[in-house]
Design a protein around this nucleic acid. Structure first.
Lengths: 124, 124
DNA sequence: AATTTAAGATTACACGCGTAATCAATTAAT
DNA sequence: ATTAATTGATTACGCGTGTAATCTTAAATT
């Protein structure tokens, strides 16, 4: 599995919004939430390329970056390893923890029900 | 929030099994799964103390370590920040990702249903 | 009493990460 | 044609982490 740092993921996340994307586009997308220096973001883009999370094509003197993995794929892998580490591979205890600490809204519950519904339909 | 590294968490996890626990007990508990050197584990115990995750009492020349936080409390915080980072604070998409990739067993579904049931009962 | 052992304290060290600054080269502007 | 600006490449640097080795001191053994 490609291992990304927190900051690297956030940059990749900005590319996922819409790609291919140039460095300046990524910098623009991040400028609202982050106080990162332009140079910092470019460093992170390079590291993402080096790690195989981004590819690029030259367009004049700029690069057009494209993710090498889908967001869903990456977050699934991360979720698996998270749940493995903290809950021995079982997802229910995580949800249960949220429930106990009153972190769940009716909306969350509805969404969860739908997930379960869909799962059961698909079983048949 | 106390920030623990992966290795630190695994050592703390071995203390949570049963405490107070001496260094040798922790080392013994970890020896099955891990190839860690005894010195490595002691380093991690010290770092956990320094970070305020463990406290200890002297017992002769040994220390008796006790966690300063409950496992549930720690994993809840970690889960929150994980779900915030990857799923914008919503838990259902995580579960949904598992479902789509066929990571859910009937048993998981049953447990999730129970969590939902309990939540709804408690709402009334 | 002297010596060995063992526990925790201190030190070590390379690598990844956050956070840029500087360098080199090419394009845009004058 | 020069010069200025901008892009990606390279270099920097302190801190955390994984992974111990060495040091110090007190207890256990002989």
């Amino acid at each position: 599995m490609i291992e990304l740092s927190k900051a690297e993921f956030e940059v990749l996340d900005a590319v996922w919004i819409n790609y291919p994307a140039t460095a300046s586009e990524v910098i623009a997308r991040l400028s609202d939430d982050k106080e990162w220096h332009e140079k910092t973001i470019k460093t992170l883009l390079s590291r993402l390329v080096k790690k195989g999370a981004l590819s690029f094509e030259k367009q004049g003197r700029q690069y057009n970056y494209t993710p090498c993995i889908a967001r869903e794929e990456y977050t699934l892998k991360e979720s698996q390893s998270f749940i493995e580490r903290f809950f021995n591979g079982h997802i229910a205890p995580l949800v249960s923890g949220f429930a106990k600490s009153e972190q769940l809204s009716q909306h969350d519950i509805d969404e969860l029900k739908k997930v379960i519904d869909d799962w059961e339909k698909q079983q048949k």
